[in-house]
Every structure is written in structure tokens, then in C-alpha cells.
Design a protein around this nucleic acid. Structure first.
Length: 528
RNA sequence: GGCCCCUUCGUCUAGUGGUCUAGGACUCCGGCCUUUCACGCCGGCAACACGGGUUCGAGUCCCGUAGGGGUCACCA
């Protein structure tokens, strides 16, 4: 049997990280068995612009490399894959259910329904519809209609026995039929609802494994009732735990972003992202740009494999030790029976640590390419990039090493792309390293003279030069190197000092030191 | 509230009756390295929700309690 799974997003305009985890499990299950992963768009209830609301989701999948065998853009033997274009199938199914007596026209008014519901609640019993306005024959229907009533189609659910099925994650599950409500499957206007559409599509698309979040577990009996009534074969179900909020067991929700921002790690990640976003022209409004949404990671330069690796471990594990999974390894080892039953909270730190290690393992060339994109978006280098600049960027990326965790971090080293006269000094380190030590200015000026005439200007030679200079002056390296860093980069922290000098080159170094000394003189004057 | 589900370090998890004085990872805290910031290395703190059973023996099986969550739409 070919395994066919599906992921069925509603076009909401964004791709939720929890949704991706569900999609990933579906994708893995199908792909590892040589089966197909289908993308279906659940847009029965949307009147919004599909371009705007669907494209970000498709982009997210493309970025992650979660390819679908059938669905939007690629088509397939069961096209169309949009529910909005399959309404007649659902209507036909509704009619079939009506004809076979598994559904009925219900002429109750919303108020009458509400009254029954309330009464049940008052008496503390399950709400089961009295079926007072149920019409099973055309005569009954005509009578209700003569009273000015209109109908919806409801499922005529069994009232005895149990619905039993096996779930790949939860084991044997059973529900009492008698507690299930007669759900509406077709609205007054003739359009059909989710549960019907879902069952019909899964059947038409030949989906063999329904892998979805647990919140659908309690929907399953009514879906089973529908599919059995329609004579369909039952798929394998796997209800996976949802992804929970950082630090709680509530379902992760995009809408509660304000609350998550109170979480220290979540906030730090968001702020790091926002800093990058601000520089490359992306609006960092937390409602459209935040760590719950997949775009966030793409936009600030995460590696898709790192995100996937983190996600696969959220509710699944291979053993007691293995944590690193390439795409191939995931495909090889993933199995539904090792999916955990309890919900897992989203942990930014761990995601970040995967990102750091994946980034570190990325070949320099690719890392440079990623970083280049950010420099261009921030208008720090031209597009296309000039040849000698390309070399410079590669040097910087190499020197920065693991200080670049996400590609957008390259912007922390913008000092190399700024004209000397436009460089700004961070105030705090300037005070601490330049103003406060009495001899900083003198030492820097002296060392500048040395730099001006020293023969070789590569990192190794410069290191020797500086050490020689310190020896002559009778000082430690620490006495001058901090001021040097501030003078040359404007910042307190950065990568290796000598790499920095070499990359900048003699002229720019001397130039910047002179600017820093002038700045220092101004401060001293002002203080007197 | 009814129904259903879940419960091992702060977090993700390993664990299917003895090998558990509970293992790994992230975080955190020390230390080393070091010109800064990182990385790296070494070390450390830290958990079986509780109460009853069953058993020679329970994190592991059973019952109960508590806590947490999901779901109860003419949403998906």
C-alpha cells in the first residue's frame, strides 16, 4: 500500500510553527515510505484574497524544502486541491447522506437550538438534540416550510454504542455515540462544512494516514460516522500532541504574542530578529513578524534544516542520545510509534542552539552567500556585488566564525562597510577605553605611527608588531588593544583584533585611529 | 460543567518490573582558554505530581486524588 498523507492549511496569511511540525510529520511518514504528501487548501470559509493569504504558506513550505507531490502549483491527478473548487463533491455527499438516512433536513431555528442546549446545561446532562424539527420526508419538510422555516442538513448520529478506532499515537480510542451531537454538515445556503469536506477530500485524494493535532481527536467520531455512512474505507489516524507555548501547556497561538513577549528567551529572540528586520526594510510588527511564524526565521537568516531538526524532536525522539538529524536521517529513522503523547512547549533556546551548530557547519562559501544577501538588503553593499567586495565579505564571514549565528548577524559587522568619516563610536566603550585611561590617547597615537610604516599588514605580522610595540612601551597588550578596537570599529566587541586590522587595511585603520583621537581631544576639551 | 487526553530535571526527552544511587540535550552556575565578544574544553546544580494497592522488587502494572490541557459552532 502506498502511504498518502496530507496537510490542509487554511489560507491565513502565515505559516504557524506548530503547523509546520504537523506538516513535517506528515511529510516524513509519506516520503520515507515512497508515498505522497498532498497539500490541500481548506478555504471553504474564506472570502479573502487567496494570493495574499496562501502565498506566504507556500513560500514557507518551499523555504523549508517540504515539497508536496500534489496540490497548489504542482497540480496532480485529483486536482483541484482547493476546497472552494470542490463544493459540488461535498453537496453530492450531503445528498447521498440524506438519501441513505444518515442525515436529515433540520428546520429548527437557532433560538430553538439554543434553548435546548441551555436546558440540557441546566439539567447537567449532555446536549442531545430532540430532533423536533427533523424532516425525513418531503411531506414533513413541506409542512415546516409552510411555517416559514428553512433548513440545514444535520448528521443523524447513532445514539447507542461506541465509536472505536485505533490511533497510531494514542492507541485504542473509544467514544460513546450517544454523546455526539447531530452536527451540521450543510448550511442554509447550501454550502458545506469542514467535517464533511474533510472526509470527502481525504477519500477522494486517497489519503491513507490522517496525521493531525490532538485537538481533532474529539472530531474523529463524527468524521468516522460520515465516512462509514458514505461507504468509505477508514484511514489510519495519528493524533499528535500540539506545540505548546513557551513555559506553559497551552496551545501555541499567534494571537497571544504579547504574552509570549514576557518570556525572556522569546523576547530576546524576537528582539534579535527585529533588529535585523529593521535594517533590511521588514516591518517588525510582532503580529506579523515573530518567532511563532516561520517567515520570521527565513527573514533573519536561519537555516531550514536547523528549524526542521528542532521541530522533529518536538514530540518525537529516536533514542536516548541522538539529536542531530539531517533530512535524510529523519527520513530514515522517523516512526509514528515513537511520537510522544504529551504536549511539548516551544523552546527558543534550543532552536537557537540547533541554528548555531548548523550555521557553524555550513561551508564558508554558502555562509558568505547568505550573509551577502543581508548586506545588500541593508544597502551596505551593491547588488550585484563588486568583485573585490565579495572577497572582503568572505574574509569577514570567516573571521567572524561562529559569531554569526543567523545570517542576519552579519549586520553586526557593518563597520567594515561604512566610510571612516561616517563611523560612529559606541559611547560606553568609548568612555571606558578611550576617555578614562589617561594614556590611551598617547599610546594610540604612538601605535598609529607604527602602523603607518610597518612592512606587512597581515594578521600574523600585526600581532608581532603590536607585541613589539607593547614591549617597547613597557605595557601589557591589554593596555592598548581595547582602545584600538574601539577606535577602529567603534564597538567594544568583535572578532580577532588582528583580523580586523588586516581586513580594514592600513589606510582605513590609520584614518580611523586619527578620527578617534580627534574625537577624544574634543571630549577632553569639553570636559575641562 | 460534560466528555476526552496528558503528567520524569526550568525546557525537549530516554526509560515497556530488577542493569535507575534515573541517562542525554538545551538553559543556568562554576572553572579553564583568552586582547574584547563568542566558540571550545572541563566540572556542577537539577526530575519520576501525590496517595493507595499488586509484587520478593514499581519511574515502569492497577485504582484513586490533584494539577494541566483539549473539545463541546450554520470555524477550520
Amino acid at each position: 500500500m502506498t502511504i498518502r498523507t496530507r496537510f490542509a492549511p487554511s489560507p491565513t496569511g502565515y505559516l504557524h510553527i506548530g503547523g509546520v511540525r504537523t506538516a513535517l510529520f506528515n511529510w516524513l511518514l509519506a516520503k520515507q515510505a515512497g508515498g505522497q504528501f498532498v497539500l490541500r487548501i481548506d478555504d471553504t470559509d474564506t472570502r479573502r484574497n487567496l494570493d495574499e493569504t496562501l502565498q506566504p504558506i507556500l513560500d514557507g513550505f518551499n523555504w523549508l524544502g517540504l515539497d508536496w507531490d500534489e496540490g497548489p502549483e504542482v497540480g496532480g491527478p485529483h486536482a483541484p486541491y482547493f476546497q472552494s473548487q470542490r463544493l459540488e463533491h461535498y453537496q453530492a455527499a450531503a445528498n447521498q447522506l440524506l438519501a441513505s438516512g444518515h442525515a436529515y433536513r433540520d428546520y429548527s431555528s437557532p433560538e430553538e437550538m439554543a434553548a435546548e442546549r441551555e436546558a440540557a446545561e441546566k439539567e447537567k446532562r449532555d446536549f442531545v438534540y430532540s430532533r423536533t424539527w427533523m424532516a425525513e420526508s418531503d411531506e414533513q419538510a413541506a409542512e415546516f416550510e409552510s411555517q416559514g422555516r428553512s433548513f440545514v442538513v444535520r448528521l443523524k448520529m447513532p445514539r447507542d454504542g461506541k465509536c472505536e478506532f485505533h490511533d497510531l499515537v494514542r492507541g485504542d480510542v473509544s467514544f460513546d455515540w450517544g454523546r455526539e451531537a447531530d452536527h451540521v454538515i450543510q448550511r442554509g445556503d447550501g454550502t458545506c462544512l469542514y467535517h464533511l469536506a474533510n472526509v470527502v477530500d481525504d477519500h477522494d485524494f486517497e489519503v491513507t494516514h490522517v496525521v493531525r493535532a490532538v485537538e481533532h481527536l474529539s472530531n474523529t467520531p463524527r468524521q468516522i460516522f460520515i465516512l462509514q455512512s458514505l461507504g468509505y474505507e477508514m484511514p489510519q489516524y495519528a493524533h499528535i500532541p500540539f506545540v505548546a507555548e513557551p513555559g506553559s501547556k497551552n496551545k501555541l497561538s499567534k494571537r497571544k504574542i504579547d504574552q509570549y513577549l514576557n518570556n525572556k528567551d522569546f523576547k530576546r529572540l524576537y528582539q534579535a530578529g527585529a533588529e535585523i528586520a529593521n535594517r533590511i526594510g521588514i516591518e517588525a510588527d510582532p503580529y506579523s513578524f515573530n518567532p511563532v511564524l516561520v517567515d520570521f526565521y527565513r527573514d533573519i537568516g536561519f537555516l531550514p534544516d536547523a528549524v526542521l531538526n528542532y521541530l522533529v524532536l518536538l514530540g518525537w525522539s529516536l533514542d536516548d542520545k541522538t539529536e542531530d538529524f539531517s533530512r535524510e536521517e529523519m527520513l530514515e529513522h522517523f516512526s509514528a510509534d515513537r511520537i510522544v503523547r504529551s504536549e511539548a512547549s516551544f523552546d527558543c533556546q534550543k532552536l537557537l542552539s540547533f541554528q548555531a551548530s548548523y550555521m557553524n557547519a555550513l561551508p564558508l562559501k554558502q555562509k558568505t552567500k547568505m550573509c551577502l544577501g543581508f548586506l545588500q538588503k541593508a544597502n551596505l553593499v551593491s547588488d550585484p556585488v563588486a568583485c573585490e567586495q565579495g572577497e572582503l565579505i568572505s574574509q569577514i564571514v570567516e573571521a567572524a566564525g561562529d559569531r554569526i549565528c543567523m545570517a542576519g548577524d552579519i549586520l553586526k559587522f557593518d563597520t567594515f562597510f561604512i566610510a571612516d568619516e561616517d563611523m560612529e563610536f559606541d559611547e560606553k566603550p568609548f568612555q571606558k577605553r578611550m576617555v578614562k585611561p589617561a594614556n590611551a590617547g598617547f599610546l594610540l597615537a604612538e601605535f598609529n605611527k607604527v602602523l603607518n610604516v610597518t612592512d606587512d599588514f597581515d594578521a600574523a605580522a600585526l600581532e608581532t608588531t603590536l607585541h613589539g610595540f607593547c614591549e617597547n612601551q613597557g605595557i601589557g597588550v591589554g593596555d592598548v588593544i581595547h582602545a584600538l578596537r574601539v577606535a577602529v570599529t567603534g564597538k567594544a566587541a568583535g572578532f580577532g583584533m588582528f583580523d580586523t586590522l588586516e581586513i580594514l587595511g592600513r589606510q582605513r585603520c590609520c584614518n580611523r585611529i586619527q578620527i578617534a583621537l580627534d574625537e577624544l581631544a574634543k571630549r577632553v576639551e569639553a570636559n575641562q
